[in-house]
């Protein structure tokens, strides 16, 4: 195991751990380039920049980069090798996403009933639906990529 303070973020499997470290390093370099670019841009007045918006953008950009690379790498579902295991996992993903949607909608609806919502109910439901769809799509793409990759490696 590498001697690093981010050990708690890394998985036990050696291949996964080293690949994720590469993604973190790539994200850090991209962030450095983004900071340098923003410093140059900030010298000119023609592009107005809100500091907080820029920081949030960089935060989400960095997380999204590592997340997308991880999903597309096909290493999340490392043990899914057969068509049967793939179908079982796909079913689990559908159940997980649907449960998430139901729980979110129920929570939002109950918040609305008790007058604890600061936004309209329909907006809350739309956000829940988008979140559930995103959860399903990311898991599904990751599963599909893992299955394709693993099929080539089976003995």
């Amino acid at each position: 195991m590498e001697k690093t303070w981010i050990r708690f973020l890394l998985p036990d499997d050696e291949y996964k751990r080293r690949t994720i470290l590469v993604y973190f390093a790539e994200a850090a370099i991209l962030q450095l380039i983004a900071v340098l670019t923003l410093i140059v841009i900030s010298q000119f007045d023609f592009i107005p920049m809100d500091g907080v918006v820029v920081l949030i953008g960089m935060l989400f950009g960095t997380i999204a980069y590592v997340w997308i690379r991880y999903i597309l790498s096909g290493m999340e579902f490392a043990e899914i090798m057969t068509a049967k295991a793939y179908r079982r996992e796909r079913k689990l993903i559908i159940i997980k996403s649907t449960s998430f949607l139901v729980i979110m909608c129920a929570s939002i609806a109950s918040f609305d009933v008790f007058g604890m919502m600061s936004v309209p109910l329909i907006e809350g439901l739309i956000v829940s639906f988008i979140a559930a769809l995103l959860l399903f799509l990311t898991n599904y793409v990751s599963l599909k990529r893992s299955y394709w990759k693993n099929r080539e490696l089976i003995d």
């Binding site: 499997d13 291949y15 996964k16 490392a78 043990e79 090798m81 080539e152 490696l153």
Partner: peptide, 28 residues
Amino acid sequence: MTQEQLARQVRVTRQTIGLIEKGEYNPT
């Protein structure tokens, strides 16, 4: 021995063993 058995013994995933066998990953 199966990939799964070897993977369990050396505490990695089956995918890692498959990648090593195919020469697509250089282990430590």
